[in-house]
Amino acid sequence: MEKRKTLYGLLACIIILFILYALVTNFIIDPGAKAFLNRKIGLKRELNLLVWINVMHVHIVFACIAMATGLLNFSNRIFNKSRKFHRINGYVYLVSVLLVVITSGYMAPYATGGKITSMGFNVLNMIWLLTTIMALVQIKKKRIIRHQNWMIRSYAFCFTNLLIHLITFLFHQGFGLVYATSYIIGVYGSIVLLLVIPSFIIRDIGQSKEG
């Protein structure tokens, strides 16, 4: 129990810092996303800059809401105090994921790296939406453990952006690959990690409950 509390506290600190970083960077330091747009070369579609930036801002806001609401719903303390809040918060998470997926779908054709990256983002979106719907289906059937497991799989995708940029940084700065190639590796590498890591977490939680 103490281990889970410590891990939850650490996760909460990381998420709070990441949300603050995302909001400050994209709404205060670089609201026009100039640094990110400079990486986009050879786009096959004409980019409507104003629309793209507005969609990106909506995407970021609801991605942050998804991270925050998902974190709250993993809190046993909050769950035990108010099941109603847990349920409402869960629906806020669901709507946030849906809006993130929709806005990501709009931005995918303009992704750095071209069509292959766009395909990767579409795969990510479909998996995230599917895992979230599965979590909803399971709780409607009163299958609590399965609901929790699917929520872990769904929530992992809140870290897509973080993982993509970490992998991209590793291959671009660490191995000297061009940015576009590193970004493609980041997208597909994150898909693999986001499918694999939750399985270990679910297995570890199951073992701790048995112990």
Rank of each mutant, 00 (worst) to 15 (best):
K140T: 08
G113H: 03
H86F: 03
Y93E: 02
I144L: 06
L136Q: 13
K115M: 01
M151N: 11
S96T: 06
Q138C: 14
L94Y: 02
R153S: 11
K141Y: 11
N122W: 05
M151C: 09
V95Q: 01
G90I: 05
K141T: 09
T131I: 03
L94T: 06
N89E: 11
V101E: 15
Q138P: 00
G113K: 01
T117K: 05
Q148W: 06
I116T: 13
L99F: 11
F85M: 07
M151Y: 00
V95P: 01
L99I: 15
H147M: 02
R153W: 04
S96P: 09
I145D: 14
V92E: 04
L124Q: 03
G90A: 08
N125T: 07
T103R: 00
A111T: 10
P109D: 01
M107L: 06
I102R: 04
N122Q: 12
L124K: 01
T131C: 09
I102C: 13
L94V: 10
T103N: 00
F121R: 01
H147F: 07
Y93T: 02
I133P: 03
I127Y: 05
L136H: 13
V137S: 06
I116V: 15
G114E: 11
T132H: 06
R87E: 14
K141P: 14
S104F: 02
L94M: 09
H86P: 08
N89T: 13
I144N: 06
F121D: 02
L98C: 14
V137T: 12
A108E: 10
I144S: 13
R83A: 15
M151I: 03
I102G: 13
V100M: 11
